[in-house]
C-alpha cells in the first residue's frame, strides 16, 4: 500500500512509575495516507500525545510496531530517530517553543540550515502570512504570530509529516483560526501528512479524518466526506 505513509500495529506503551504500571497505549493499529489531514481528539491521559510522540520519533514503544514508509520507527535507535525527525518530521508545539534570541526568519532558518531539501525561510514565512514580521524577535510577536512562525519553521524543511500537539491550545478563537488556516494551507501546498492533536472538538470539521482516543486505544474513527475550511468553524 504505497499510499500509506504511517502504519502502526499493536502499538503499546507502558510507563513504570515506581511499582505502578501505567498503560498509555494498549495496542493501537493505525494507518495514514500521504497528504491526509487527521485530527486526533480525546481526553487527557487517553494516550493521544504518547501516540504522537512515538510516531514523531520522540519516544519509544514498549511493544508493537510503527512504520514510516519503509522505516520501522520502533527499530531505530536514538541516532536513527534524530535523523528521522530531522529529515521527515515537522513539529508544532502548544507553546510555540521559538528560540527567543532569534528573529522569526532566523527561527525558520535554524531548521532550513540542517534540512536536506528546504524551502527558503522567506517562502515559509510567506506561506503563513508573516513576511512583514520576519525580522521581529519572538518577544515582539503576538501568540498567534509566534505559532505561525512555529508552523513556518516546521514546514520549511518540506517535511513529509507535520505533527501538531495542541497548536491552538494557548490561543484565542480568532487567532486559533488563523493558525488553523495556516496549517490547512500548508497541508494543501506542501502535501505533508498532518496530524493535529486537540481538545477542541470544533476543529474536527476541517479534517479529512478524525480519530478519538480513550484509555490508550482508538475508540472512534470518522471520515469527513466534506471538510470545512478553518474560517467556517468557531469555538
Amino acid at each position: 500500500m504505497s499510499n500509506s505513509i504511517f502504519r502502526t500495529k499493536g502499538l503499546t506503551k507502558v510507563y513504570r512509575s515506581g511499582a505502578q504500571e501505567v498503560h498509555a497505549l494498549r495496542g493501537v493499529d493505525f494507518r495514514a495516507a500521504r497528504g491526509e489531514f487527521i485530527v486526533i481528539l480525546g481526553p487527557s491521559g487517553s494516550g493521544k500525545s504518547t501516540f504522537l510522540n512515538i510516531v514523531g520519533g520522540l519516544d519509544t514503544a514498549t511493544a508493537g510496531e510503527a512504520w514510516f514508509g519503509d522505516h520501522q520507527l520502533t527499530a531505530l535507535d536514538e541516532r536513527g530517530l534524530t535523523q528521522y525527525r530531522r529529515d521527515h518530521v515537522g513539529f508544532v508545539f502548544q507553546f510555540y517553543n521559538l528560540v527567543p534570541s532569534l528573529t522569526a526568519r532566523e527561527n525558520v532558518a535554524l531548521v532550513t540550515e540542517i534540512a536536506r531539501h528546504p524551502m527558503s525561510p522567506d517562502d515559509a514565512l510567506a506561506l503563513v502570512g508573516l513576511t512583514d514580521r520576519r525580522d521581529h524577535f519572538p518577544a515582539q510577536l503576538s501568540g498567534g504570530e509566534q505559532q505561525r512562525v512555529a508552523i513556518a519553521r516546521a514546514i520549511a524543511k518540506n517535511p513529509e509529516v507535520l505533527l501538531c500537539d495542541e497548536p491552538t491550545g494557548a490561543l484565542d478563537s480568532a487567532t486559533g483560526i488563523k493558525v488553523l488556516e495556516a496549517l490547512a494551507e500548508v497541508n494543501r501546498s506542501v502535501g505533508a501528512t498532518t496530524l493535529v492533536i486537540t481538545h477542541n472538538a470544533a476543529i474536527r470539521e476541517i479534517a479529512d479524518r478524525v480519530l478519538r482516543f480513550a484509555d490508550g486505544r482508538i475508540v472512534e474513527e470518522t471520515t469527513n466526506a466534506t471538510k470545512k475550511s478553518p474560517a467556517e468553524v468557531s469555538w
Binding site: 514523531g56 520522540l58 536514538e78 541516532r79 534524530t82 535523523q83 525527525r85 530531522r86 529529515d87 518530521v89 513539529f91 508545539f93 517553543n97 528560540v99 527567543p100 535554524l110 531548521v111 540542517i114 519553521r153
Partner: peptide, 16 residues
C-alpha cells in the same frame, strides 16, 4: 534547557 530540548525535537543531534 527548554530551547535546547525543542531543537532536539526539531531534529538537532545531541552533539549539535
Amino acid at each position: 534547557g527548554r530551547e535546547l530540548a525543542s531543537l532536539r525535537v526539531l531534529g538537532f543531534t545531541r552533539g549539535e
